[in-house]
Amino acid sequence: MDNSENVRKAIKQVSRLMAVIFMAFVIIAGMLVYLMVDPTLSAFKSAPSTEEYVSVQESSEEQLSEEDFDKIENGIHVRTGLLEAEGLMEVVNNCTNCHSAKLVTQNRMNKERWIATIRWMQETQNLWDLGNNEEIIVNYLVTNYPVKKKGRREILSNIEWYELQE
Rank of each mutant, 00 (worst) to 15 (best):
N6E: 11
V7W: 10
K9F: 04
I11K: 14
I11R: 15
K12H: 10
Q13R: 15
L17P: 01
A19M: 04
I21G: 06
I21Q: 11
M23L: 15
A24N: 10
V26R: 13
V26Y: 13
I28F: 15
G30E: 04
G30H: 13
G30L: 12
V37N: 09
V37A: 07
D38M: 09
D38Q: 11
P39S: 14
L41V: 06
S42A: 08
F44I: 06
P48W: 10
E51M: 13
Y53F: 09
S55K: 15
V56A: 05
V56F: 05
E61K: 15
E62R: 11
Q63T: 12
E67Q: 15
E67V: 13
E73P: 01
N74L: 13
G75V: 02
I76H: 14
I76C: 07
I76A: 08
H77F: 05
V78D: 09
V78G: 06
L83M: 12
L83K: 14
E84H: 09
A85N: 08
E86A: 11
E86P: 02
E86S: 05
G87S: 08
G87Q: 08
L88E: 06
L88F: 14
M89Y: 06
E90G: 01
V91C: 04
V91K: 08
V91D: 04
V92N: 09
V92K: 13
N93E: 07
N97D: 05
N97K: 05
C98L: 04
H99V: 01
K102R: 15
L103S: 11
V104E: 04
N107M: 06
E112F: 07
E112L: 01
R113T: 01
R113I: 00
W114K: 01
W114R: 01
A116F: 02
A116Q: 09
T117V: 00
T117L: 05
T117N: 05
I118T: 00
I118S: 02
I118M: 04
W120M: 00
W120P: 00
W120H: 04
M121D: 00
E123Y: 07
Q125L: 00
Q125K: 03
L127C: 00
W128Q: 02
N132Q: 06
N132I: 02
N132G: 04
N133L: 09
Y140Q: 03
L141F: 02
N144A: 03
Y145A: 03
Y145F: 10
Y145R: 12
V147Y: 09
R153K: 03
R153A: 05
E154G: 15
E154H: 13
L156M: 07
N158D: 09
I159K: 15
I159A: 13
E160C: 03
E166F: 12
E166M: 08
E166W: 13
